[in-house]
Design a binder for these strands. Structure first.
Lengths: 212, 212, 212, 212
DNA sequence: ATCTAATCGAGACGGTACGTCATGTCTTGAA
DNA sequence: TTCAAGACATGACGTACCGTCTCGATTAGAT
């Protein structure tokens, strides 16, 4: 009798449909772009009724956010299997003792990722939606972005202990000096994205702009 | 800019309609948000036929970009009249000889601007659209963002001459160390935006993360 | 009749909407005339989405033809209940043995009907559309006109058996001698439509123009 | 100063434009049909401004009526030159003394004309418009149809004098017995249009349906 | 022969309606 | 009961024409 909005019964949920919806959503965003991706399109491609989508998600952005989260999770798992180190943290930043080299290494990997078409379309779409939709934006950051930034915080803390970074700095702010420029170039097309560029960012950030 | 078939005659264009469309577009974006702003809504609010919009612009984003440009132009003009210095450059960055102070001053002004509701709605909308629509994004950057960044380039060059910034740095990249973090926090809600934060950014960027 | 792509499922069709659309279409044609009757107007008056009209009909004329057919059907049913004779044929032409009188009687009834405003507006509209749109015209004739003409054929055949009409005549053509003049006067305003006129037509047709 | 609606100066009217408009209107009606013929289309095809049409005509139907009248006038003139008889009346009905033969002859010519594609498209369009627009319908009849019917009146009067038609008949009604059936078949597609059919009509009408 | 006022081609304008697409809700029948 | 299917009311899309309204540029008719 309670078929209305009040919480659907999650135990009866069709796993098969969920997967199909994720796949369809990601594929469509990649193929036709986010604005032309429609709920109806996702439903039909997933071989699913529209209601099945509306029952479990509240909007197109919502579907995509979960689909992308799922994709990232899979990717992380895959990466973890390739590199089954004791260090359980996914994508952990290496700590070779050479901070500049470690940061450059990770930023280069990020450059590669930003160019991977499978990631680009959905993450751009989510980022764009987040700019204009604060609620979604905060969820995007909390679930996807912040965990990654936390890795930089960890690495910077370790560097502070090793004496390679000034102890009075706030690592959460410090990391923005080299991460945000890359992010902005990617988001707003304010400049080219290359290894050389990210290397330069690390150098500038570590040594500062003022003469020593 | 009018790439329609059989280009319309711009000399016959109604100035009155253009202004009304700009005003309506900006007002609607501020009132109901970008996604709920429709071409029909703009037309009806401006007291204008839809075709008049389609004749001169190719999309909602296109209208808004021009409207915002116009608004910025007006604001710049107004500001210029308040401060009719010999220095003709609009919004020029002050050069008191104290680089850190000058940058902090300008970034604080930017913080204020980012919070001005009249600017926030349309610029967020344009930024979001630009993330997902490269063509528009590049136009947004070229016409609105880059001219502002150029002012930082100029100030940093002057600082290089004064010996306050290392001469081998690329100023266009250097400025990103303090500008991009602010931009990212604004775009993605990755952190609070305060005077204290921007002051910190300047200090970190000028002095570097590594101990001296 | 639903020749759209991917034919809609007629079993799920809303009877309520269909009725509302018929009513709205007939009312609008009567009130504002056929050319000012729009699909949007019908939809809005019927409290129905435009798509619901486009789903089941292909044009304004198509809607009106069905609406009028439905109306005629209802009228015929109502008439049949008033006069539940053994003679099942709807609107059957009386057969009193006096051919001239019977024809005059029926033609006078037709004159009345042609002047009934509830019938005039839609049937004029359909006739006009049919003049210029052969496909619709033929459907109009086949579903509405021809069944009525067939009644004359029957009556003339009976008269032939009774020896009141020459046996070698083609009744389908013969009936046109008195029916078509009335039709043309109505369609083209080529002359007044009165009982006297239709009586005269019957006399002329039965007796011929040549002296006896 | 009187540039408003009040009568334009007909002496300055461009003959060239009028002709071009007639030609364009007739051509378009023939090519794309009346409903798809638009004022803008006529103007552009005639190489004429829209205002030039609105200045001299009140509607699409009005343009077409005049254009068709002009065309008929030309055709009549051409026919008159082919057959420059003493009888000045255009398309006069022959009077050989054999009424039936004369009527059959003229009706056969009418059958031919009804099939001439150059005439069919515009006259159908005007007839259709006239069904639904009484004002135009009456003008159509008065300027085009009635003059032709008058020729039958004349011929029937002559026949009455010759004793071939009963003297008490109203010729204006009598002619409808064979003219209207043909008209209705043409207007409403109620039957095929052949020489045999029109011959039959004349026989039925002259001799009557009742046995002699 | 010159002036001058209207008509002319052109097309921008405020509108209305078109026919299509997607939204989010609701209903139906099969599993 | 959930699901796929899809009809439904709603509303925006982008297009086509409507009839009105300027714009110069001819182009006669009156001077």
């Amino acid at each position: 009798m309670a078929q209305n909005q009040s919480a659907p019964d999650a135990t009866r949920r069709s796993e098969r449909s969920r997967r199909a919806i994720y796949d369809a959503a990601l594929a469509l965003v990649a193929e036709v772009g986010y604005p032309k991706t429609t709920i109806e399109g996702i439903a039909s491609r997933a071989g699913v009724g529209k209601q099945t989508i509306y029952r479990w998600w509240s909007s197109k952005a919502d579907v995509l956010l979960e689909a992308f989260l799922d994709l990232s999770g899979q990717a992380a798992e895959a990466a973890a299997q390739d590199r089954p180190s004791a260090d359980a943290s996914p994508y952990g930043i290496p700590d070779t003792g050479d901070l500049a080299a470690d940061l450059k290494h990770v930023l280069r990997a990020t450059v590669d990722e930003l160019r991977d078409p499978a990631f680009e379309a959905p993450s751009r779409a989510l980022a764009a939606e987040g700019v204009v939709n604060e609620e979604l934006g905060r969820r995007f950051v909390a679930t996807l972005l912040e965990p990654q930034l936390q890795l930089y915080v960890d690495r910077l803390r370790s560097a502070q202990e090793a004496g390679d970074v000034r102890p009075d700095l706030d690592p959460r702010i410090a990391l923005e000096l080299f991460v945000s420029p890359l992010a902005q170039r990617w988001l707003q097309y304010t400049g080219p994205i290359t290894y050389e560029y990210t290397d330069t960012l690390v150098d500038y950030a570590l040594n500062g702009l003022a003469p020593r």
